[in-house]
């Protein structure tokens, strides 16, 4: 081993932090556009429906739940497709990219879950002030009176798992190509399918003897957390073996 003098890399900010900044910047425009559209659409639809029906009983904001999960899922796939090769070409390891992308996708999922919770609460407050009832047209687990913690327990894990599953799907496509990536979808999509499946079946929140909503929420969060950790570990392992192919 030699020690070069003139051009050896010196000290610099952590590559993971640099990659994280770049990846968060990639999520930023989509985050802005998506939530502006949600707010504008809900604000426009509510008075229209109120004028027609005399009242509004559904949560328009709640409809963004499915959209948010799938947009994040797709964005994560694109993120891997665009940034993994460029990051390696820029002198980062795949491990660095995997760490940064997990934090970026997971953090964005967390943010979107919190944003949706806040908007649901705001919408609920508006409806109450106008004397309307609120129920969520989507299969949102907590009921109209559920606490902020129950809303967070349902919405945040869904978005985080959606984003991390997108990374896993994207990296497997990068690793094995289009045909095998598609054939592997039943496995790579499994984390999100598991959480959506249990969520929509309302398994975790169905009142059973001796189980409070709080306990059910905790089980739901813990289950989603385990699924996320397993998906993240698989993603990191696969990402570290990806070949950077020529694009021409």
């Amino acid at each position: 081993m030699t020690t070069a003098t003139a051009t050896r890399p010196g000290t610099q900010a952590s590559p993971t932090r640099h990659a994280l900044r770049v990846l968060l910047r990639a999520f930023r425009p989509l985050t802005t556009w998506f939530w502006v559209i949600v707010v504008v659409a809900a604000a426009a639809a509510t008075p229209v429906v109120a004028a027609v029906n005399g009242e509004v009983e559904i949560s328009f904001v709640g409809l963004a739940r499915q959209g948010g999960i799938w947009v994040l899922f797709a964005m994560s796939i694109v993120l891997v497709a665009v940034h993994l090769s460029a990051s390696v070409a820029a002198g980062m390891t795949r491990r660095t990219f995997a760490r940064a992308s997990l934090v970026a996708a997971g953090g964005t999922g967390l943010l979107w879950g919190v944003l949706l919770t806040v908007l649901v609460l705001v919408e609920r407050a508006v409806h109450r002030a106008l004397g309307w009832d609120t129920h969520l047209a989507d299969a949102l687990l907590p009921d109209p009176t559920s606490s902020v913690w129950l809303l967070l327990a349902e919405l945040v894990p869904m978005h985080v798992v959606g984003a991390v599953t997108g990374l896993l799907v994207g990296v497997v496509y990068q690793r094995v190509g289009g045909w095998w990536g598609t054939l592997a979808l039943p496995l790579t999509f499994l984390p999100l399918a598991l959480v959506i499946g249990t969520d929509e079946a309302q398994v975790a929140f169905v009142p059973v003897d001796g189980v409070t909503p709080g306990t059910a929420a905790a089980v739901h969060v813990l289950g989603a957390l385990l699924v996320t950790v397993a998906a993240a570990a698989t993603y990191t392992a696969v990402a570290r073996t990806v070949v950077v192919r020529s694009t021409t």
Binding site: T7, R8, P9, Q12, P15, V82, H83, S85, A86, V88, A89, G91, M92, T93, R94, R95, T96, R240, V244, S246, T247, T248
Partner: peptide
């Protein structure tokens, strides 16, 4: 996956490997 040498190795191919958009 070498954290020491990776920042010091730069391969530029005709195909690019940049952020196209």
């Amino acid at each position: 996956e070498n954290e020491r040498t990776a920042p010091g190795v730069c391969l530029v191919r005709e195909s690019g490997d940049v952020l196209d958009e």
